[in-house]
Design a binder for these strands. Structure first.
Lengths: 292, 292
DNA sequence: GTCCGTTACGCCTGGCGTAAATATG
DNA sequence: CATATTTACGCCAGGCGTAACGGAC
């Protein structure tokens, strides 16, 4: 089978118009007709309905099945091209989320030879974003934080460590005297949450569901972690944070959560499924795994 | 690009022998040479090393990258064929693990029309096995038990419910008087584990790690749940079991575990990523989701 | 020499374009 | 009739086979 046919077909299902697809690929319009006929022969089924009463329903169930699979196939082919194009550039395209980076970056640099550091291209973004960059082939290795054990389609991840979530509050806040707290007690607190840090947000939701509370006063959605800390310091509210995000913050105290943890915050090294590591990349990953 | 070339290439990497591959596909041997040359042109790289000092190292890094991706692509194509071939047989190929089935099957039958039941082809196997059947396209819908939130490559799963694990013991066992127990207390107990029920085994490991115990006496690995119950009844040991597996078993008592649960036992409905449900299948899944 | 892969060359199918025909609304 | 898709047909490239050649042990 010709993979061009799959590309034509996917485009056709999306645009629902042979003429447009032909233009898109700079081929004549009968080419598209013939391509579809080839696929229908190959799979021995109708893919496109002939009595097109409604444009929206022009694809058969078989067609939809092929469409879904073809998209994944096309993406894989595209990825293979990308990976192979870069196979001989010896760069290590590595993603590290800002908060995890804060703790790890100095250790990484200490333990990595200059030669390897030269090759390192670090992108820093939230774990959620990095996961997509990894899936799309924009980076090849990432350290990612997640709530569950990381197990995403197309991604192979290995656990490095798990970290506890803590409650942070101003030193002036009544909670500041406590060493630990149950999440159920926090129903009436004012919470400050992140916008961008997907894992924190998800963990917060998890805890609320688990404890059966719904803090009515979950007000701020702040995009920057140091803003969150500043708001907490000024006693505008409390927040949920991974231990690593905190380092001797004056005016802020962190309080253990003593509920059974419904989901752990995990840190993993992740690569794309089927990605072939260079010796340098393999070495680099072994360094990452040793840093706990 | 021609997908036949990918098949030839994958076989070549596996067999490391052009002649054999040619025989395998019933083509002449130069066909394979030419196929590889086409791929090398397409990807603008060497895939196979020319100075084959060692057969084992005949594939370049680029070649390995293509190999890994090509395997996944070929599998997807194969799956698309399978799915489409069955698209118009209106059977619902459904997997249900025995233990979960024990609780669910009567409810499923009560809530499902005869018409739909006619179409149902149920395979019963452990969740681990069913997951593979789902991935390989042998079944299309499955109810699966797992310890974490189910998130496997190529699988889309939706949570139905979570269930607690319990300790079961003979009525004669000292634990029988207890209502609940901490896992840490069980370090010196004799445990009876399943061979096949992957989730139970994994949960047991999880609990042991979590509680920091290593029951030295984890002796029996029994393949059948009713054998396990019989052994427990005769006070040969205790076991870990999902609540649903138990129904008024004379001579056996179940004891709550009062540790914070490190991993939940979850029950999910799962389908292959990109699988297109028929209206009947969609209806059937909505029935499954309503049974909690 | 033997085994294995590559090159050379001819054949024919398969994918494309143009033009005409047909369907849909 | 206008727009969209399919059919008819001719052209050329691409994939295959046979035969001959080249390299490694």
């Amino acid at each position: 089978m010709n993979t061009r046919d799959l590309q034509y077909f996917v485009a056709l299902v999306k645009y629902k118009n042979y003429t447009q697809v032909a233009k898109l690929f700079n081929v004549s319009q009968p080419t598209i007709t013939q391509s579809i006929q080839r696929l229908e022969r190959e799979f021995n089924t109708r893919l496109i309905r002939k009595n097109k009463v409604h444009r929206d329903e022009m694809v058969t169930r078989s067609g939809m099945m092929l469409f879904e699979n073809a998209q994944l196939i096309n993406k894989k082919i595209e990825l293979a091209h990308q990976e192979i194009n870069r196979a001989n550039q010896r760069q290590i395209r590595f993603g590290l989320p800002p908060i995890i980076g804060k703790v790890y970056i100095s250790k990484i640099i200490q333990n990595t030879s200059d030669d390897l550091l030269q090759r390192l291209r670090i992108s820093s973004a939230g774990s959620h974003e990095l996961l997509h960059e990894l899936q799309d082939g924009k980076i090849d290795i990432a350290v990612l934080g997640s709530n569950n054990l990381l197990n995403q389609p197309g991604i192979y991840a290995e656990l490095i460590t798990t970290r506890p979530f803590k409650i942070i509050a101003s030193a002036k806040h009544p909670l500041a005297k406590r060493k630990s707290v149950s999440f159920k007690e926090l129903g009436n607190e004012r919470f400050i949450n992140f916008d961008q840090q997907y894992v924190h947000h998800a963990a917060f939701q998890e805890y609320c569901t688990y404890a059966g509370i719904k803090p009515a006063t979950t007000v701020y959605q702040v995009p920057n972690i140091s803003w969150v800390k500043e708001l907490v310091r000024q006693n505008q509210g409390i927040s949920l944070m991974v231990k690593d995000a905190l380092r001797n913050e004056p005016g802020i105290v962190s309080i253990d959560i003593n509920d059974p943890i419904p989901e752990k915050f995990t840190i993993s090294v992740a690569i794309r499924e089927g990605y072939v590591l260079s010796p340098e990349e393999e070495h680099f990953i072994s360094i990452l795994k040793e840093i706990k």
